[in-house]
C-alpha cells in the first residue's frame, strides 16, 4: 500500500499495483512489452496470444503513438476476440503513459478485468519508443524489452534502462542476422555483461520454435503470481 488509508476501499481501487481487486479476487498478472519501433512487439504479442489463449484467460492493452494500428493488427489477425483488446491513446508519448502517468493504462486494464474477466494475464504493449522507455511497477508486474538484430547489434552494448533492467530481454528476428551483418554471439555477450543474471531470449517468430521460449517464461511468471 502506498498510504495509510483511514477509510475502506468501497469504490474502485485507488492505488495502482494492489494485487487484490475490490471484489476480493486476485487480479491478473500484468506483463509489459516495450522496445524500439519495428522490433516486433506486436508480432510477439500476437504469437503469445496464439500460444497461450487456450490455457489462459488473457487480454491485451496497446499504447500506440498516433494510431490504433497495433490494436487493429491484433484484431485483424484475430488473435483474441475484439472485446479482449483495448487501445490507450498516449498523446505522442508512450513512455509517459507506461511510466510517468499510468492512469489511462490502469483504467484499461481494470475495465478489461471488469468486462471480460476473470483474467489470468494482461499483456500491456508500449508503442515503439526509445531505449530508456520502461514500465512503471505500478502498472505491470514484469516487463519484456524487445529489440531486434536488424536494429544494430550494438544495442545490448549501449544498454539503457530497457536493455539492462527488463525482466526478460528478447532479441528478435534472429533469422535476419546473416543478412544485416549482426553478430548474435556478440549481442549475447554484451547482454550478459549489461544484465548479469537476468534472462535473454533469442527468437525468430518465423522459426518452428517461434515464441515458445517467451511463452514458457510467461507461464513461469503466472505460476509464481498464482502461488504468491
Amino acid at each position: 500500500m502506498h498510504l495509510d488509508h483511514s477509510h475502506t476501499h468501497d469504490g474502485p481501487a485507488a492505488v495502482s499495483a494492489d494485487a487484490v481487486r475490490p471484489d476480493g479476487r486476485r487480479r491478473a498478472l500484468r506483463v509489459g512489452l516495450g522496445g524500439p519501433v519495428g522490433s516486433g512487439k506486436t508480432a510477439t504479442v500476437a504469437a503469445l496470444c496464439r500460444a497461450l489463449r487456450d490455457e489462459l484467460s488473457l487480454a491485451v492493452v496497446t499504447n500506440d503513438i498516433y494510431t490504433r494500428e497495433d490494436a487493429a493488427f491484433l484484431l485483424r489477425e484475430a488473435v483474441l476476440p475484439p472485446e479482449r483488446i483495448a487501445a490507450v491513446e498516449t498523446g505522442a508519448c508512450p513512455h509517459t503513459a507506461i511510466r510517468d502517468d499510468i492512469s489511462a493504462n490502469l483504467e484499461a486494464v481494470e475495465d478489461l478485468e471488469d468486462e471480460v474477466g476473470p483474467l489470468d494475464l494482461v499483456l500491456v504493449e508500449s508503442g515503439g519508443d526509445n531505449l530508456t522507455a520502461t514500465f512503471s511497477r505500478g502498472l505491470v508486474d514484469a516487463q519484456l524489452f524487445v529489440i531486434d538484430v536488424a536494429g544494430g547489434d550494438d544495442i545490448p552494448r549501449k544498454g539503457g534502462p530497457g536493455v539492462t533492467t527488463a525482466d526478460l530481454l528478447v532479441v528478435n528476428k534472429t533469422d535476419l542476422a546473416p543478412y544485416v551483418g549482426s553478430d548474435l554471439q556478440r549481442m549475447a555477450r554484451d547482454a550478459k555483461a549489461q544484465r548479469a543474471e537476468l534472462p535473454v531470449v533469442f527468437q525468430s517468430l518465423r522459426s518452428e520454435e517461434g515464441v515458445s521460449e517467451v511463452a514458457a517464461w510467461v507461464r513461469e511468471r503466472i505460476a509464481a503470481w498464482t502461488a504468491a
Partner: peptide, 28 residues
C-alpha cells in the same frame, strides 16, 4: 469523464478522503 476518472485515481492515492470515495462509488 475519462480525465475525471484519472484525476480521481490520482487524488485518492495522494489526498484520500471519504468525499472522494463517495463520488468514485457513484461515478465509477
Amino acid at each position: 469523464r475519462k480525465l475525471g476518472r484519472q484525476m480521481m485515481r490520482a487524488a485518492r492515492a495522494t489526498w484520500p478522503s471519504a468525499e472522494l470515495d463517495a463520488l468514485a462509488s457513484v461515478r465509477p
